[in-house]
Computed example of a mutant assay.
Amino acid sequence: MVLAAVTIFALSQFGIVSASDDLPPMTVYQDPNCGCCGDWIDHLEENGFEVEAEYRSDMGNVKQQAGVPQHLGSCHTALVGDYVIEGHVPADDIKALLHNAPEGIQGLTVPGMPVGSPGMERGDRLDPYDVLSFTSDGATRVVASYGK
């Protein structure tokens, strides 16, 4: 598990996974009143993902059905390949996950809505945040850190 996390981090940081990779389509579930979700979708599309947005007013149910632990939640939930992506995860980290397919990982999350993460840009401000992998039993590991 640690090796998988280090590999995801290395691939995302050094650009080994590119936008030209064959990426599966992604479905993003979002509240119809959330603006930052659309900005995150723009980030994904700019980085080679084909995204379908589905507006839902029952995001708590979506997260529960996707298996997102409550303490790891954010505003939107996406499904891509066999993985759940929760919150403002950078596209390169998602690509690294898809490329490596580490065993036991259910998905990636950026809990909350940190300023400076993709879709949450506010000028030059970048609040420190971590991208976490998570398993079906709720175990997490840091796979990338930003703004530290």
Rank of each mutant, 00 (worst) to 15 (best):
P102Y: 06
G81M: 05
P118G: 11
P114A: 03
H88A: 03
E103H: 11
L108D: 12
V89K: 06
D92H: 10
D130Q: 15
P118Q: 05
L108A: 12
I94P: 14
G123K: 03
N100H: 09
A91P: 04
P114T: 00
V110Q: 07
D82V: 09
L98R: 13
I85V: 07
P90A: 15
Y129M: 11
I94D: 07
D92T: 13
P90S: 14
S117G: 05
V115N: 01
V115H: 04
H88Y: 02
V110L: 06
P118I: 02
L126W: 00
H99C: 07
M120Q: 08
A101S: 05
N100S: 13
H76G: 10
G81C: 09
V110W: 01
G81D: 07
E86F: 01
M120C: 08
N100A: 13
V89Y: 01
E86H: 07
Q106I: 07
A101H: 04
R122Y: 02
G81Q: 08
G119V: 08
V131Y: 10
Y83T: 07
E86G: 11
I85Y: 01
I85C: 01
R125A: 02
V84Y: 01
V131K: 14
L108Y: 13
L132Q: 10
P90V: 11
Q106C: 09
A78W: 10
D92I: 06
V84E: 02
G112T: 11
L98T: 15
G116A: 09
K95W: 04
A96D: 01
R122D: 01
K95Q: 13
P114E: 01
E86R: 11
D127G: 06
Y129I: 12
Q106A: 15
S117W: 01
V84H: 01
V110T: 09
H76Y: 12
R125H: 05
V110E: 05
H99I: 03
L98K: 13
D92L: 05
Y83S: 09
Y83P: 07
E121K: 11
L98F: 14
V131T: 14
I105M: 10
Y83A: 06
S117N: 07
H99V: 08
A78Y: 12
T109F: 02
R122P: 02
D92W: 03
D82E: 13
I105W: 11
G87C: 02
P90C: 15
P111N: 14
V131A: 14
D93R: 15
H76K: 14
G112L: 08
G116T: 07
L108V: 13
E103P: 06
L132K: 14
E103I: 15
